[in-house]
Amino acid sequence: MARRKSANLWGWLFVLPTIIGLIVLNIYPMIRTIWQSFHRVGDFGLGNEFVGMDNYERLFAGGIFGAEIWQAAANTIFYTLLEVPLSIVIALILAVFLNGKIRGRTTFRVIFFLPMIVAPAAVAMVWRWLFNTEFGLINNVFGIRVSWLSNPNIALFSLAIIGIWSVIGYNMILFLASLQDVPRDYYEAASIDGASPIRQFFSITLPLISPMIFFVTVTRVIAGLQIFDSIFMIMGMGTGGNPALPRTQSLVYIFYRYAFINRNWGMGATVVVFLLVLIALVTAVQMIAQKKWVHYN
């Protein structure tokens, strides 16, 4: 009895800092943001008037806000659809290669992971320079003049290239960890039966690491839907703004603009609640779909 009481006490003592922190930093703010999405800050930033569903009506009724937010949602989803599958396929191929008998494995791993330890702000600056229309390395090497970052039809693809380049190393590390858990004798048995390496990949490797592929897909989709840094650094900079901004700005970027440039807390909160719902829906769909393709043993 005394021991139980003391466990109770110690338990509370140990979780107290974390729980207080989470309530102050996360639980209260979450409720407060949802509450804020039903309010509008008055002129000159004074008062906070209850407006019911007004902000959400603006979101669904078209108009300036509605059109901009839905376009941003489309941009965000399109970006995610480009970045996530490609970065996963490339990372998976690289991980399978490095899992074999490869000389210089450590060196390759170090190189592929390098972008992850560089601040995205610096990455974006470097790519802005590489993609520069007049003097950029890419256009000059290939002798072309593509407006990679200011042509509204191309810019989102360029941002996806930056995203893929940044994240393949991270995905690869996770795949590699999961590949190392696949027992070697499975492959030996398959080799004796005459299965080609490609056949082995599809019938042994892929099913066995499918839980990790699922995990990486879910977390990368969530991260992709939250893209901000590269758009802020590339599209939000310069005088007069980038002509490709409307076709590239993401939901988090317009959240930043509404809330912290225009100080429109109500619309900012509404956009971020919209993002929350979008992420929840997409994740739920993936959770249901996984039953069809993820193998847990």
């Binding site: 703010p29 407060r32 804020q36 939250q226 971020v272 993002l275």
Partner: peptide, 8 residues
């Protein structure tokens, strides 16, 4: 998603 905490 962490953006939901940012305004408050």
């Amino acid at each position: 998603p962490s953006q939901i905490f940012i305004i408050p």
